[in-house]
Simulated scan of single mutants.
Amino acid sequence: MVGAPVLIFDPRPKTKRSDLFDREEELSRFEESISRRDPLILLLGLRRTGKTSLLLTGLNELKVNYLLVDLRVLEEKLQITRRDIAFLLEKAVVDFLRRTSFKERITKYLEKIEGLRIAGFEVKVDWRTKPYYFISDLFHALNSWAEDTGEYVVVAFDEAQELARAYRVGFDRILSYVYDYLRNISIVLTGSKIGLLYRFLRIGDPEAPLYGRARLEVKLDYFNREMSLEFLRKGFEEQGIAVSENTLEKVVDVLNGVPGWLALYGYYAVRYSVSNDVLERVLREASAVALNELKHFLELRYQARSRYLTILKYLASVEYAVWSEIKRYLESREGVAIDDKTFSRLLKNLVDTGFVEKSSKGYRIADPALKYSLREIVS
């Protein structure tokens, strides 16, 4: 099967509806919102649920003009500088100009922005320009072009919660202004750290710039067990590979309903073989990724590092645990009493960043790769 297209098992973000599995309802809601020109859309879901795939598929299907700022690389940075913002905006503008059929006309509007230089497909942003003014001018230029030509622009920020650490940029004020006055632009914010994204937008805060402004939310969840099995069945059927139900059941037992990990398993199984070795390889690679994400989280919270790890390692040893059980365990490990407010803040941070999931049953680690890494790797 070497060289065969992988389609549904392609580990890269999808861009076509035919390659997107079981997201019809979410995709329809997203596309309807874009078609209505809703001013603010939140695309939410834990890591590896397919947010970027749904975003790109919807935008490509509707054939709308869009500028996509990929903020995922900022997660690894302890501090976000003006240079970082400038680099990401340069890339976003270059990609936008390469995609659009209106390059020359749009360039005339963009060239008026102070701190932006365009030569062909080379774009340079002067990082010394204050990001607040530059980004505001960028939105204005895009809106003016769209208004003058009868077009429409979607500006999407992938993993938008990272903007909260962009010091003195004032993104929430910029978004509020775009919402109120720039009628030819829709803003899409994706976020896997849903609690942090809500904090960044200051949802529920009457003094927040975006308070009282309607938003549409589209949320992607992990697959349930039957949907996970169907995902694997369909993927292998596309490749003409017969796989026993027992094998599929085992894969889902190990990888749960995480679309990204299931797709990675299918990709390797098609390329190499349907075997336990491939499943173990996927689990090792997925665990390394999950552990690296946890490492970046802990680097920003060094003083409470041991407490976070204690909580996570306990949750990795159980299916679910309630608030009081986790608190008692942490106190027993440290040998001291911990006040409720401090403990609640620790647990909330883990939930807000997507490492822990809260439900009516209690708290749990939903990502099997993170669970595995905490059991086997973290000491």
Rank of each mutant, 00 (worst) to 15 (best):
G115L: 00
Q303S: 14
D22P: 04
V123C: 13
S360V: 13
V154E: 10
L74P: 07
K130D: 09
Q239R: 03
R183G: 10
H140C: 11
F134W: 02
L248E: 04
L42K: 13
A166Q: 07
R82K: 15
S101V: 10
L42N: 09
E230G: 03
Y314G: 00
G260T: 06
K295N: 11
I203D: 09
K77R: 09
R183I: 09
K63R: 13
G115R: 01
Q161P: 04
Y363R: 07
R271T: 08
L196M: 13
L182K: 11
S344N: 15
W145K: 05
E151F: 00
V6H: 08
R183M: 08
G50V: 00
Q239E: 03
S244C: 07
T190I: 14
L232A: 00
L374V: 08
R29Y: 02
D148I: 06
R345C: 14
V378Q: 09
A160R: 07
R29F: 04
D22T: 02
S373R: 01
L138K: 01
A164D: 14
P39C: 10
K361R: 14
S186K: 08
R98V: 06
S344A: 15
Y267Q: 05
D180E: 12
F297M: 06
L43M: 05
R72D: 07
G50K: 03
I203P: 07
L42V: 01
